[in-house]
Design a binder for these strands. Structure first.
Lengths: 251, 251
DNA sequence: AATCTTCAGAATCTCGACAAAATGAGGTAC
DNA sequence: GTACCTCATTTTGTCGAGATTCTGAAGATT
């Protein structure tokens, strides 16, 4: 039998890695609530692993800002706050904007093809399974944005992007989003892609910022009933983002 | 006796934290060589702690790209490569450029004061203790750049900056830098600060890019004797960096 | 000679148990 | 009533031992 002898690199994942994946998923999906105490004994029972691999996973999550660890006082799910949500959105816009600009400057025909393919898959993906958007749609959404930034030619930047996407995603999933907020995601994605393929970096970045900022607005609106405060906060955020990126056409 | 009862938050650092700090320092100082196998048993003897806190520290370092972990095959000091050095430099220039632009747009008089103070301390710091620049000088250097970016008003961006600074620092310390390469660091810093305080973001960013790129050039020159290749590589790097940031004056 | 198998030694990863620290309830002094 | 102290319980952080997996060298096969 010609079975592969060499085990490759996708070995049996270590228990610490499995625990990491499950904890990561459970924090992002808000099954573990922000600020919640993470009792090792309880997690041990839930995930069926010992304390050592658990602590290892928790330490790694600490570096990703999904868990906080304090002295001799154990671990907690990282807390959330409006300030943090705004900071994450701002940083994400900055990193994504830079990556986009570089990708648009350097992308070749293969890149164009991958963007078109990802956009096609995203369009064909069933959007909602009831009230909310489906998980598959969000996976395709991530892949579309990854494809756009892909040609920035910087692994380190892609790592930061992933980390920031995860942090944002938690806020989105925590939010009580009722409906789509009257947005047309297909149109938003289409215009971002059109601008990118037309090599109009300023337009693509500007549209992407809107894309991010509007999502943040929906989340904030779900938290606060003071629509006026939301508007002011979002305006400030948009101004902060623009202040970090270069000058833009007046739109 | 009115001794403080509450222990505050600066408790006895946990052994895992101590191990993390020492490993972090030893990797950055190149006492642990890139690619080197990290035998837990040997580290246990060296640092005098058990395997559990060690593994915890190693996991955290993995998230910071200073250590690699593979399946059932233990840990290694993260390898180095020219491609990675260029990627780190590029990403650092992008993040630092954005932070600087935001800081220059939003910095108040307190920020100006802190920048001036940091610059003053840096000037007053004894530069060399023999051939190389002193460790204290590099600490002050870091604080100067931190002060400049400080007003970007984004904790997350500052975290990325720190991480990138560490990754760059390892390459610098690995390099065989002979001398200062004819650079006048005081002048470079002075002109960056002047531009920043004059609120000329484009100039400040441009000078900072030069600052980073020249350091990378010195490191590459130490590795390769092919000066022509170094020049071409550095030119490409500079072009890549500019491609990610907005348009600049022709200089 | 090159490739495959076998197998002992070494290293990794994991578990259960233990010491040290934190937490919180109840009692005491002011 | 408020603040402080005391002490049992809970939780954390750590260690040593053991099961599983990898590694590399010697021998067998083509």
């Amino acid at each position: 039998m010609p079975a592969k002898q060499r085990s490759g690199s996708a070995e049996t994942p270590t228990l610490a890695v499995q625990a990491f994946s499950r904890l990561h998923a459970d924090i992002l999906s808000a099954k573990l609530r922000p600020g919640e105490k993470m009792y090792v004994e309880r997690l041990r029972a839930t995930y069926g692993v010992g304390a050592t691999p658990l602590r290892e996973a928790l330490s790694k999550l600490t570096s990703l800002d999904l868990v906080t660890a304090e002295g001799q006082r154990g671990f907690r799910v990282a807390p959330v706050s409006t300030a943090n949500l705004l900071d994450i959105t701002k940083t994400r816009a900055w990193v994504e904007g830079t990556a986009l600009r570089a990708a648009i400057a350097g992308g070749d025909r293969r890149w164009e093809g991958q963007v078109l393919a990802a956009a096609h898959r995203l369009r064909g993906c069933p959007k909602s399974d009831g009230e909310r958007l489906s998980d598959e749609w969000y996976r395709e959404n991530r892949e579309f944005h990854d494809a756009l930034a892909g040609a920035c030619n910087s692994p380190q930047t892609m790592i930061f992007r992933t980390q920031l996407y995860d942090l944002s995603d938690r806020y989105r999933r925590l939010s009580v989003q009722n409906g789509l907020g009257g947005r047309d995601f297909d149109a938003e994605h289409q215009s971002i892609m059109d601008a990118a393929l037309a090599r109009d970096a300023d337009a693509a970045i500007s549209l992407t910022i809107d894309h991010f900022v509007e999502t943040t607005r929906v989340i904030l609106s779900g938290e606060s009933s003071d629509q006026d405060w939301v508007d002011r906060t979002i305006d400030t955020l948009r101004r902060d983002i623009r202040a970090g990126l270069g000058s833009f056409p007046a739109k």
